[in-house]
Every structure is written in C-alpha cells, then in structure tokens.
Design a protein around this nucleic acid. Structure first.
Length: 815
DNA sequence: CAGTGAGCGAGCTTCCGCTTGACTT
C-alpha cells in the first residue's frame, strides 16, 4: 500500500520482518526499497500430504492464503527493480525463504543476489551488500527434508490416533515429546516416596568488637535418620561446650549469565515477573516493533560490537570502569543456528522505556541482563565457622558470605527454579569470631524434613528442557505450549498443598527438651503443567507403537541427517525415504493390529451389585462405569459417571469411583418439587424447581447434607436474587433491570444490555429500556456477526482452538 | 452450565517454522 509501490526502484531488498525492513531502509539510503515477506510465503498443500510419496517425495507447494497479497506486491516490485537482494535470515529456514521467493517471484539469477547479516547495524548491512552470494541449494534441501519429515510424521501419526484413541487428536515430532516429558514427570511424582531426616540448627550468642551481642545461626553438618538419634543428640547439647575449632575463609567469584535468548528470556520473565511464555513473547514483540529491543526470536547469545561498545561506555559511566568486563559468550544449545543477535535493548543508554507496566518491566529485565553480562565478576569471601558440639563428635557449621566487590551483582541476579530450599542459600554477614572461642548456646532446634518430590514443569522450565534436547525452535516454543494445552493433553493448574505432620525438638539454654508434633502445608503447586488422562493415554499409545518417534533423541538424530544434506553429502529425498519406508510400515501394522486405546482400568467389584467397576476415556472425557456392555437381549445397561476434576484414571481408587455414583442424590421434596444434590462443573449444587443453588464451600458436604439445610440454602439464594432485581414490568416479564457485577443492566430475553452512566436505572420506563436495547443492537452490528462466527466455531470444534479454525473459515469465505 | 456414555456413517480433524495482525468480555 506504500506510495513507493508504483515507482521503479534500483534495488529491492526483501527481509523477513517488517520492523527489520524499516530499520534497514534507513541504513541503505534512497536507492534501496526494503520490503518484508512476513516469514515463509509458501507451504505444503494439505491434500495428499502435500508430498508425492511415489515420486521422490516431490513437495507440492502453494502460496499461503494470508500471503497472496504480499506475494503479489513483491512480484510487481521485483519486476521493476534492477536488482533484487534476498536478505532473509542466515539459517536453514531463511535460506528456504530466499529460495521460495526466487521461485515464486520468478526471479532471474543475473539480477538476484543473496545476502546475509546477523546483526542489524549499518556496518553489518553494508558489508553484506558488498559480499553477496548465491542461494545455497543444499541448505534449502535440508529445510525441505525437515519440512517433509514433519509433515509425514504429523499427518500419518495423527490419523492413527483418530482411529485408535479419539478424533481430532494430533501427534508430531515436537509436541508429542513435550507431552511425554510432562507425563513422565507426573509418574515420577506419583511414584515418589518421601523419606525424612532430621535437621538440627543452633543459635549461639556472640559479642562483637564493639561489645554488641549478636546471634549466630549454625547448622549441624549431618542429618539424623531417626527421631531417637536426634533426641539423644539434642539432649547431649544441653550441657555441651561449644568450641570454635576452625574459621575457614576462601575467596569465591561469581560470573554473570549470558545475554538473553528466547528461551532464557522466557524462563527469567516467568520466574521474576510471573509472565507466561506467550505473554513474554507478545510483550517482547511490542518492544521490538517499537524499536526498543532487538529481535526476540533468537537462539544466539552473541552481541554485536556496536552493542559491546555501548555497554562498555554505559557501565563505565554509571558505575565506573572497574565494573566493565567485555565478554564473548558461546551458545550451549543443541542445534542453535544463531541467525540473530541475543535479545538486547537497541540503545543501552536507556535503562527504562515508555509503555505499559509490563513492557517496562520486561524491558528493564532485558536491560539489566544485557548490562550485567558485560560486567566484572563479583568477588566474595566465603566463611565457614566450625563449632564442635562438646564430645558428641558432631559439629555445627555457620556459613556466611561477604561481598568484597559486587561487580555484576550490582545490577542483576539470575533466579533459579529451586523451591523450598532457599534459606540455605541466604548470604549472611557473620560476626567476627576467632578460633578457640567458646560460644554460649541460646537454643537448639531439630525438625523432621522430607525429601522433595521431583518438580513438575512450568511452561518456562519445559521450554528449557526442550531446548536442552534440541527440540523446537525459538519461534515455536510458545505455540507448542499452547498446542499441547489446546489439544487437551496438558493443563496448567494450581494445586493446594496438603497438611503434613512433622516432629520437632526444642532445647533452650538451661531448660529441658520440648518434644512436639507440628503441621506444615506441603506440595502446593502454582501454574504447573499436569497431563490430562487423554494426554496420558495418547502418550502411552505412542510410546508403545512409535517409540522411535517420541524418543528424546529423535530430533537430534534427524538433525544430524539434515546436516549431511546441508553439506551436500546426502540427497534429501533419499534420506527421507530411509526414514519413511519403515515408518509407514509401522503405521500400517499399528492400524491393523493394535486395539483401541481407552486407558481402561478395572478397579474391582461393586459390593452392592456384584458388578465390575472400571474407568476409561469416554466420548466426553474420563468416566467410571459399573457393569459391562453386553449384546445380549435385555441385558442391563452399565451405569456411568464422569470423573471429577483432579481425579485421574491412573490413580482413582475403587472407593472414590463408587462415591461418584452416590450423586445425584434426591433428598426429598420442598414446595412439592424434588430437591436433588449433585456435583457439576462449578462444584456441588442443589437443584430445585429447575434452579441451581451452590453448596456452601467448606461447610456443606454433598454426601451428608440434609433436606433442612438444603432448603435453608435455597431460601437465602432467593433473598439474594431479590436484591438483584431493581425493577420489573408486569406487561413485559421478559425484561428486567438487574444489579450486576458492573452495576445495573437490562436483561431482555436472556441477553444483557448496557445502561448509560447518566441514566438512573430505577427511574427507567419500559419504553426507555426498549429504546436502549434497540440502540445497543444497532450500534454494534459487528457484535452479532462475531457472536455467530464464534458459535459456528464451537459447533465444528470440540475444544478451544478457536484461533486456527477461525482463520480457516474466514480464508475459505474470502476465496 | 449442572448431561451425555452410539456406529442408519457425511466429512472433518492433523505437522513444524517463518512472520504479523484482528479478534473479545
């Protein structure tokens, strides 16, 4: 749409991102028009795999529907340009984009150049223009192999799941491994048996140089396995002498972390700011588009020389030259392609930025991390004081750290995922203590401690694991995490902890030991990824029949193969053929031979009826069942009940399953209508006269509640509802003025309408209400169509994959 | 929103990686 479209330009440069195009255009001057392809412009067609299996896996590429406009414009511009510069990223995907552009725009070799740069700086770009090359067809072929392999795996495997597990499911090289990680971890947690030991700490009294009395906390250098041993030791402490036998001092240095990549940014934003992976990416995108940070999808920890100079100047100015230590970091990530710089502020002299609160916070995080990465090591002195506990043969250790030179710690401290054990990492300043001193004991405390269960994944820690395994790319981490949640394989959830008792011993100077049992809350989870039943069943199915595909090193193996293709040592279609032939055989075999997979577990026998009790995945999710289906005439049908939230096929017990059938429960009658207790999506409820009343949380037990209490709840609900009604009209019972969460509103035929703020709700007449309804429906005709669209989406798709489906429906319409 | 738990079968679902917008209570 730009005005320049019709003008003939000397040079057309095509990059992938429009924001990048804008910046580069400034560097190149008026002879260059810089445009963007918006990523890939073509993809495999969806019919017949988009790949001709019988003809060397010949790909069938079509221009993506949302790229037709872009392609049309680029084609015209390319036709009129004297030279076309393909400046997509220097990695496998970027090379392929260049090649697709070459093919699709019908470019000619003599006036096409391929150029690459890893940083968006004037120097880098001008150097690139001076050093053009040809499209590297081997690298392109490696990308084609990658693309075709992913298509074949995804489009062969998914239909197997439709037949053997449930329709609409999906499997793929990346998502299936992500799910597997989460399922495996859940089972580790389930199998985990905590063991306990006893941790002993003591507080001593110390007088410092100025005569001030201070407390010194120390921990025993061992933990006891049994309560008896612990008690015996604590008792001995009451009259023991505590002698400082050694004061150990050693220098320690700490180094800063590398600048941010996509994955480390996602992790730190999650730990420090509590952002989800998708949130981080969308905020970063905004910062990028505003020119405030460099590109946010990168696996590189490299900073440009320009950035390093800026960092050096900035640190020197803000904190002094002794804080500068310019470093080059090397990536550790498997399969990193390093087409971009690390994520950094565009201008390092800006330590903050205008924008939303979230943008500010993320920017400041990036600024700090970038600056810290170029700062000096922190110099610490670690002190360990050894305190002999009388003649018990044990000793207490007090550790402390003093910072001699703070270095990068002045700006940034990296967080870790460790939960619970933070107190041990606390750095404390120790009072001056000398060897040979005898310390006064104030108290000794011993408490039972339990070993920690394996940590469930957060979105961010899953990304880190995937990156470690070389699975997925910076541009796909966030979408992959959405996919496995949208498919219903995984849920992000909070879980309340459970109460646990622990033993406690307390000894105060000159007093007897106090023994007690205390309570703590343990195992609470916040925003953790849990597998669903369907996720587990699908995973087990894939592991059983397609172990090689969902194995953790599958991607690494095929990447090696792609590397050979990129080097020109192997023909890509041959490499695909070697994989596909046996894979396809397994698919056929599995379709023929495997049973349908429902995750069925037989729990036992129902004592009341003598029938079998089992659980499995049903049409609408996990269910429990009493009895078995039978073809025989007049055979009794089994009874069914859905599993509740938090119950799982794998862990539910016979008793819990039988409990499910106790509801709904009829209590009796009230006002000649039955009162029924049940549990629905929103918890336990009372149903009466086709109205629903929630049970009181934490007070009412759906299995125990009696008719009297239920009636009480119904009555209070009625009173509350009355308060909601502001005005009613006898001539129009469908119309009410109600008090809602956001103030008064009009309810008409089950739809809600706004009341303007300048109107008094109580004084509205029926005519005025109808006028408001009329005005509201007219004012937003879009609302209606949007709602309709949403409804059709809901019909065609079971879960909330609204975004992808919507795109498709609109795409079809515009055709 | 508070249930349902199939084969009278028509046609659809699905992958991974590049990119950005246009959606909504």
């Amino acid at each position: 749409m730009g005005k320049k479209t019709t003008v003939t330009e000397e040079n057309l440069v095509i990059v992938e991102s429009p924001a990048k195009a804008k910046t580069i255009e400034k560097f190149l001057g008026k002879d260059f028009l810089v445009k963007s392809s918006y990523g890939h412009i073509r993809d495999l067609s969806k019919s017949d795999f988009g790949v001709d299996i019988n003809n060397n896996y010949q790909p069938d590429y079509i221009i993506s529907s949302d790229k037709k406009e872009v392609v049309k414009e680029l084609k015209l511009l390319a036709k009129n340009a004297k030279m076309v510069w393909l400046a997509s990223d220097e990695d496998r995907e970027g090379e392929a984009i260049a090649w697709h552009l070459f093919e699709t725009l019908e470019l000619k070799e003599e006036n096409t150049r391929r150029i690459v740069f890893h940083e968006i700086t004037k120097d880098a770009i001008q150097k690139a223009i001076k050093n053009p090359r040809k499209i590297d067809i081997n690298l392109v072929n490696a990308q084609q192999a990658r693309r075709v392999l992913d298509r074949l795996v995804g489009f062969e495997l998914s239909p197997v799941l439709w037949r053997k597990v449930k329709p609409s499911l999906s499997a793929g090289r990346v998502q299936s491994v992500a799910v597997r990680l989460i399922v495996d971890r859940e089972r580790e947690v389930f199998a985990f048996k905590p063991t306990s030991s006893y941790r002993v700490t003591a507080i001593f009294e110390v007088t410092d140089d100025k005569g001030r009395v201070k407390e010194l906390k120390a921990e025993l250098n061992k933990r006891f396995d049994t309560y008896e041993q612990t008690k015996a030791f604590v008792e001995k402490c009451s009259d023991a002498e505590f002698l400082v036998s050694q004061v150990e001092k050693k220098p320690v240095k700490k180094s800063p972390a590398a600048p941010f990549t996509t994955s480390t940014l996602q992790q730190e934003a999650s730990r420090k700011l509590g952002f989800s992976v998708a949130q981080t990416m969308s905020i970063a995108q905004k910062l990028y588009e505003a020119g405030k940070i460099t590109y946010m999808r990168t696996d590189s920890v490299n900073l440009s020389d320009l950035a390093l100079n800026m960092a050096s100047a900035q640190i020197s100015e803000m904190m002094g030259p002794e804080y500068v230590n310019i470093r080059k970091y090397k990536t550790k990530a498997k399969g990193a392609q390093e087409a971009h710089e690390a994520i950094r502020p565009t201008y390092l002299d800006k330590d903050t930025v205008a924008g939303s609160a979230q943008e500010k916070r993320l920017y400041e995080l990036i600024w700090k991390r970038t600056i810290a990465s170029q700062m000096s090591d922190a110099q610490l002195e670690k002190t360990v004081i050894h305190i002999e506990a009388g003649n018990t043969g044990e000793k207490f250790l007090a550790t402390g750290e003093i910072i001699k030179f703070d270095g990068f710690l002045k700006v940034y401290i990296e967080s870790t995922d460790n939960e619970g054990e933070q107190e041990e990492n606390e750095s404390v300043l120790l009072p001056p203590i000398h060897e040979g001193e005898v310390l006064e004991m104030l108290n000794v405390e011993a408490r039972q401690r339990w070993s920690q269960k394996p940590a469930r994944y957060t979105e961010a820690s899953l990304v880190r694991k995937l990156e470690e395994l070389g699975i997925g790319r910076p541009s796909t981490y966030a979408p992959t995490i959405s996919t496995i949640q949208n498919r219903g394989y995984v849920e992000k959830e909070d879980r309340d902890g459970t109460e646990r008792h622990y033993k406690h011993l307390w000894l105060e100077k000159g007093k007897p030991v106090i023994e007690s049992e205390k309570k703590e809350i343990t195992g609470a989870e916040r925003s953790k990824l849990f597998p669903t039943d369907i996720g587990m069943v699908v995973n087990d199915f894939l592991v059983k029949y397609f172990e090689s595909i969902v194995s953790f090193d599958f991607t690494a193996k095929v990447e090696k193969e792609f590397d050979d293709v990129a080097l020109g040592n192997v023909e890509w279609s041959k490499s695909i053929d070697e994989f596909y032939k046996p894979f396809h055989d397994t698919v056929e075999e599995t379709l023929e031979q495997s049973e349908k997979s429902t995750g069925e577990r037989i729990l036992g026998v129902d004592p009341a009826s003598g029938q079998q009790v089992s659980v499995r995945i049903g049409r609408f999710g996990p269910l429990a069942q009493i009895g078995v289906s039978s073809d025989e005439e007049g055979a009794e049908k089994p009874r069914f009940a859905s599993l509740r939230k938090g119950q799982h096929l794998e862990t539910i017990t016979l008793e819990e399953a039988l409990d499910l059938f106790k509801l709904p429960r009829t209590l009796g009658e009230f006002e000649n209508k039955v009162v029924v207790i049940g549990i629905g999506r929103f918890g336990p409820y009372i149903r009466h006269d086709s109205k629903f009343v929630s049970l009181k949380k934490g007070v009412d037990d759906p299995f125990e509640i009696d008719l009297e209490t239920a009636i009480e709840r119904i009555k209070t609900k009625r009173e509350e509802d009355l308060k909601k009604i502001i005005k009613e009209f006898t001539e129009e019972p469908d119309l009410q003025i109600l008090n809602g969460r956001w103030g008064p509103f009009i309810k008409y035929q089950k739809k809600n309408f706004k009341i303007p703020k300048d109107k008094n709700a109580e004084e509205l007449s029926l005519e005025e209400c109808k006028a408001l309804i009329e005005a509201d429906t007219k004012a937003s005709p879009k609302k209606k169509t949007a709602a309709k669209k949403a409804a059709t989406v809901k019909k065609t798709t079971a879960t909330k994959k609204a975004t992808t489906t919507k795109k498709k429906t609109t795409a079809k319409k515009t055709k």
